[in-house]
């Protein structure tokens, strides 16, 4: 697959939230305002790319030569957790304004299945390093896109009259369903 195809398919055709059902907790939890959605989405892109880089190298140069592939899950989640902690400390010290806007999202990202999911999918698809990084970036961008779309819809929903039993999460899920339905139209593209 060419780089361009990997990119387009990760954003639209196999959108991480709307087609693969990963990362749903932040998708529903952080999509009430556009600002929050933007912060969460950007942090996810950043952490996903960093995590993919680290886990790809660890898998290739440590786990495979030593025959420990079965520990993949355990090693990957520990790498992600320590990476997130490290990024948080680094941002706090080096770039305080960025920390102020992204800081609150970073601890939540450790348990975002988006990040671990991407690192595992990269191994299953057996991408080389360049493709893996592009795939990680595009997946993060797809997550950001889904989050922003949802935030836009939910801001409008605030002022709509919704049946009382549907108010809150149920209507948000129905909206997500319709959005996912429209993303199915991209299926034939790649």
């Amino acid at each position: 697959m060419s780089v361009f195809e990997v990119f387009i398919s990760a954003i639209f055709v196999n959108n991480i939230v709307l087609a693969q059902n990963l990362g749903n907790c932040p998708y529903l939890g952080c999509s009430k305002e556009k600002g929050v959605a933007l912060g969460m989405g950007t942090s996810v892109i950043f952490v996903t790319v960093m995590a993919t880089l680290c886990t790809w190298l660890v898998q290739k140069y440590i786990l495979i030569p030593t025959g420990l592939e079965y520990l993949q899950t355990l090693v990957f989640i520990l790498i992600i957790a320590s990476l997130v902690q490290f990024v948080e400390m680094f941002l706090k010290k080096a770039i305080p304004p960025l920390y102020a806007s992204l800081g609150i999202f970073l601890p939540l990202i450790t348990t975002n299945c988006c990040v671990l999911g991407v690192t595992l999918l990269v191994q299953r698809e057996q991408y080389d390093l360049m493709d893996a990084l592009i795939y990680a970036f595009a997946t993060g961008a797809g997550f950001l896109l889904a989050l922003l779309l949802m935030a836009g819809v939910r801001e409008r929903l605030e002022t709509c009259r919704v049946p009382k039993a549907m108010a809150g999460t149920p209507i948000a899920l129905i909206m997500a369903g319709i959005m996912s339905l429209s993303f199915m139209a991209f299926k034939g593209m790649v």
Partner: peptide, 18 residues
Amino acid sequence: EAPGAFLCLGLTLAAMNY
């Protein structure tokens, strides 16, 4: 498919709320 999951969960939650 993926959309069915969202719709189904949304309707179930709405029914429980109701």
